[in-house]
Design a protein around this nucleic acid. Structure first.
Lengths: 119, 119
DNA sequence: TTGTTTATCAACCATCTGGTTGATAACAAC
DNA sequence: GTTGTTATCAACCAGATGGTTGATAAACAA
């Protein structure tokens, strides 16, 4: 987990599983232990523990220590890094769509669906 | 690829690979064919074609037809769905952090690092 | 027709993923 | 000490993923 690319790999991979996304959802309402997190699921707590390790490696969550408990906390900063990556490309493309739209609207009149591929 | 959850699965999985993220990056500058997309990479174009199929299944890209070419287009709408999902939880948690911060700032004076786990 | 370009399909293979069960470690309470 | 709770580790397994090579199809150009 050295460079930035590996962190993005790990984070997106972590979010590609519905169980892990539900864990994120639960943690957005506050920290929780593995047992608490595992309770709503039909799978073993070992499996949940593995899921949490995946999230932890991606730095989407952190752990603390409270006797034998190891509460899991959400890390919003890492979530923000993901939206930042996505928006970097989404916004560029949407801006191009808007300007293309403006060109089509002013030059050619009818609102036909004739979009050329190579710009 | 029926429900919303499957689409999120597919989309986050699609972005968990550095090659596919670079494809997204390239496509944010405009449509391109498989051969054009494969050129910068050391892997075969069959491999790139597979990557594009993964992106297409996630509806992050679309294809069109231009003679024997099949140009690939970015789909910003799907990218936006991802940021929407992330922000849904990121913003909740950050808001909680801010209010906790405010409570700590007004009630207890010294800026020590004593955060309790269970809220 | 023949050839070229573009792109996918079909096998195949090594590795990773997500789940299981059983054993183990660390701590709390008695 | 013993018992119970919390959590991880280790080994295993079925299926998915990411890459390869070779064959094939589709749309042109000559």
């Amino acid at each position: 987990m050295s460079n930035d690319d590996d962190l993005l790999d790990a984070a997106f991979l972590a979010l590609s599983d519905p169980v892990r996304r539900q864990l994120i959802s639960r943690l957005s309402r506050g920290p929780a232990t593995v047992n608490e997190l595992a309770e709503p699921f039909a799978i073993s707590k070992q499996a949940v523990s593995k899921h949490i390790q995946v999230l932890e490696q991606a730095q989407l969550v952190t752990r603390s220590r409270d006797a034998q408990r190891r509460p899991v906390h959400l890390n919003p900063a890492r979530l923000e890094a993901l939206t930042a990556w996505i928006d970097q490309y989404r916004l560029v493309r949407e801006a191009q769509f808007r300007s293309l739209d403006a060109v089509l609207r002013t030059n050619t009149a009818p609102c036909g669906s004739s979009q050329k591929d190579r710009q």
